[in-house]
């Protein structure tokens, strides 16, 4: 069973998430160095973080008629929502806020990135970021419903919306095993709401960076951090939802959970380099015609199992 954490967990959870996001970024940098023919080593891992002093130093971008208030609000929303989403994830039996509707909370926080990215695209008042912001909405319409059904599959299987209950209800058999469609759709959703790799459509290179193209300095740092934080949060959430949480032989729950989270994160980082960008104009039709029916059928499976229990 999970219990609500003490006050200090409120600080520990974001710190752990940040560390996880940093690891993902470092791993990505190492893979990039290997592909580019540079020496692979600890130096390559640290390279991306030299951007931090650079970002803090840089002058903020000035544009003719930006809506600075909305721009800032949008940029900050992305990482803040990522951190808030982790409040319901149990880690080694402790949750910061053990909400009875944890799954819905996670989903709601994830939807906040819709608003955040659209605002980040609207704020600078320039064509490419705006197209990027709208692109995220198109992408959102494609990935969101399958993702919701994937989350519902796990919740139906456990007959609870509490994340801790979902983790404990998978004794013996992980949901990833008998709900593979939901698991894969969920992982695709993670890449989509962190707009990385194949789902980097809103920040595509063909738009010179899309929503990110006019941000500089601290704004840019925050937005980029938001991407990796979301990737880390999605990987952390995958473990209680589909991989049995901290259950496992021999090691304490927190250790198992850390191992599983890192494995999911590694798989995601590998996947995001293996695929080209998937444009929403193609993906929407695929999501609605193929993925939504598939995930609905997937929800039926745990529902039927529950009825026969």
């Amino acid at each position: 069973m999970t219990e609500a954490g003490a006050w200090w967990t409120l600080l520990a959870a974001p710190a752990m998430l940040l560390a996880l996001a940093g690891l993902a970024a470092a791993g990505h940098a190492v893979l990039a160095a290997r592909d580019a023919g540079r020496p692979v080593g600890p130096a390559a891992m640290v390279r991306p973080f030299t951007g931090v002093p650079r970002a803090l130093l840089a002058q903020p971008r000035r544009l003719p008629a930006p809506d600075v208030l909305l721009w800032r609000a949008g940029v900050i929303t992305v990482p803040v929502a990522a951190v808030l989403s982790t409040l319901v994830i149990p880690f080694g039996g402790v949750t910061v806020a053990d909400l009875s509707v944890g799954v819905v909370w996670f989903n709601a926080m994830e939807v906040l990135t819709w608003a955040g990215l659209w605002l980040a695209g609207w704020g600078p008042d320039a064509a490419f970021p705006l197209v990027g912001g709208y692109r995220f909405l198109a992408q959102g319409l494609a990935y969101e419903l399958p993702l919701m059904f994937a989350l519902i599959s796990a919740a139906t299987g456990a007959q609870s919306l509490r994340v801790g209950d979902i983790a404990t209800s998978q004794q013996g058999l992980w949901y990833a095993v008998w709900m593979p469609v939901a698991f894969i759709v969920y992982l695709a959703g993670v890449l989509a709401f962190s707009f990385l790799g194949p789902f980097a459509y809103p920040a595509g290179r063909d738009l010179a960076g899309g929503v990110m193209s006019e941000t500089s300095g601290a704004d840019r740092l925050v937005l980029r951090a938001g991407r990796w934080l979301w990737l880390a949060a999605g990987a952390a959430m995958a473990v209680p939802l589909f991989l049995g949480g901290g259950a496992g032989p021999g090691m304490p729950a927190w250790a198992w959970q850390a191992v599983k989270t890192l494995l999911v994160l590694a798989a995601l980082v590998l996947a995001l380099r293996r695929l080209p960008m998937i444009r929403a104009d193609r993906y929407v039709e695929f999501a609605w015609v193929v993925l939504i029916p598939l995930t609905i059928v997937q929800v039926l499976v745990p529902a039927l199992v529950d009825l026969n229990r």
């Binding site: 009875s100 509707v101 819905v104 909370w105 608003a115 609207w122 909405l137």
Partner: peptide, 21 residues
């Protein structure tokens, strides 16, 4: 009513962003 409250937030975000369009 945590469920309804969170669902309202979730729905409103999606709805308003589409509304903005």
């Amino acid at each position: 009513l945590p469920y309804l409250g969170v669902v309202i937030v979730l729905m409103m975000v999606m709805e308003m962003v589409i509304m903005a369009v």
